[in-house]
């Protein structure tokens, strides 16, 4: 599963990797570039399909927090 997104909070990458481990998943590729205050992030996650589905939902939720305070 790939998630590609932009964030102003670079710490989110650490959060997502820890979350993936919590769900018994892992990541195989991580690319981050920074342009001014915005990070462009791409992460490939691997794991059990059900865990990936839940991870995906959690990632969307975490990304939504940033929209709330944008």
């Amino acid at each position: 599963m790939n998630r590609t997104f932009q964030t102003r909070d670079g710490r989110l990458v650490a959060r997502l990797i820890l979350l993936a481990h919590r769900f018994g998943c892992d990541y195989t590729e991580l690319a981050v570039t920074r342009n001014a205050a915005v990070f462009s992030v791409s992460i490939d996650f691997v794991g059990n399909a059900e865990a990936l589905r839940r991870l995906d939902a959690q990632i969307s939720k975490l990304l939504d927090y940033e929209k709330e305070i944008a």
Binding site: R53, R54, A57, Q58, S60, K61
Partner: peptide, 8 residues
């Protein structure tokens, strides 16, 4: 209100 709860 939290979509991530669905089907969890």
């Amino acid at each position: 209100i939290d979509r991530s709860e669905f089907h969890k």
